[in-house]
């Protein structure tokens, strides 16, 4: 296979990907960034306005609400998914009874379309027709009934929980794949040396899984910043934009308000924020490795 490593083959084989990636990813990014410096309604020609959209962004209360909501969704989903998916994978990697069935059940939400996930959870969380409040009422916990969605404060937390439920099985599968890569003889040696389960996880599994953990973290970060359908289906971003995240606010500004320029400035900022958070995480992970 030596011949494939020749420069001309490398270029030839990667060129189609580079072209497609440039046309569908790179160029649209630059178009979006360009629009973010314009006033454009989607009709006629965009008018260059410099940094005006970005100045407006920082004075826009709704933008900050959507930014805060995105961070809440990120914080809740990141912590839950990183921890629960990891320990779920450790559990499901054991040879337990009904292991296969458990894996299938946990993975099943990942194959449901996000829009359907939203519909399912509306019937759980809606303050009037949802079963959660009904259950709380039935067991005498009326005081704990909440406006889980559609209220002024809890929607981003609820959306994070829905995202967690949807992604858990998928991330557990990735973790399990990582666990399978750990050489059995290392674990065996630790066993002989008298390491208990907790020590094996801490000193062998986690260090050997760092790459997998990093990949999962990046997947969660980029995934959370793309949550769209769940918000649209459960609350539509409402009431009064109170449950918008950056993506849905960018969408509603762009397509509902017809403010393409302003919408693209939100999208650009979302892109930058995601890059920063991913960069911080990767730098942190690299430091830990070294």
């Amino acid at each position: 296979m030596y011949w494939l490593s020749k420069k001309r083959y490398i270029i030839g084989l990667t060129l189609p990907t580079i072209i497609i990636y440039s046309v569908y990813i790179i160029i649209p990014i630059f178009i979006a960034i360009y629009y973010s410096f314009t006033k454009y309604s989607g009709i006629g020609k965009p008018v260059f306005t410099g940094l005006k959209n970005y100045q407006r962004l920082f004075a826009d209360g709704t933008f900050w609400i959507s930014f805060r909501n995105t961070l809440i969704m990120f914080g809740v989903a990141f912590v839950l998914l990183m921890v629960v998916a990891f320990f779920g994978a450790l559990l499901l990697n054991q040879h337990l009874k009904f292991n296969g069935l458990s894996k299938a059940l946990i993975f099943s939400p990942a194959i449901i379309a996000p829009i359907i996930v939203g519909i399912i959870w509306v019937y759980i969380l809606d303050p009037e027709v949802g079963i959660l409040n009904d259950i709380l009422g039935a067991i005498g916990l009326d005081a704990y009934k909440q406006q889980w969605i559609g209220g002024k404060s809890l929607s981003p937390y609820s959306i994070a929980i829905i995202y967690f439920w949807q992604q858990l099985g998928y991330l557990i599968t990735i973790y399990i794949a990582g666990l399978k890569m750990i050489p059995g003889d290392v674990m065996e040696a630790a066993q002989i040396d008298g390491a208990n389960e907790r020590q094996k996880v801490r000193y062998i599994t986690i260090p050997l899984m760092r790459n997998t953990i990093s990949n999962v973290a990046v997947l969660i970060i980029t995934g959370v910043f793309k949550i769209f359908e769940i918000v649209q289906q459960t609350t539509g971003g409402g009431p009064n934009h109170m449950s918008e995240n950056l993506v849905t606010y960018s969408y509603s500004t762009t397509f509902k308000n017809g403010e393409y320029g302003y919408g693209m400035s939100i999208a650009t900022l979302t892109f930058v924020v995601t890059l920063i958070i991913t960069g911080i995480y990767l730098a942190f992970a690299k430091e830990r490795r070294e």
Partner: peptide
Amino acid sequence: MAGIMCAGLLTGCAGT
């Protein structure tokens, strides 16, 4: 890879 995944965010909004 991280850049590619982040880029997906923006391209989703810059429709053609």
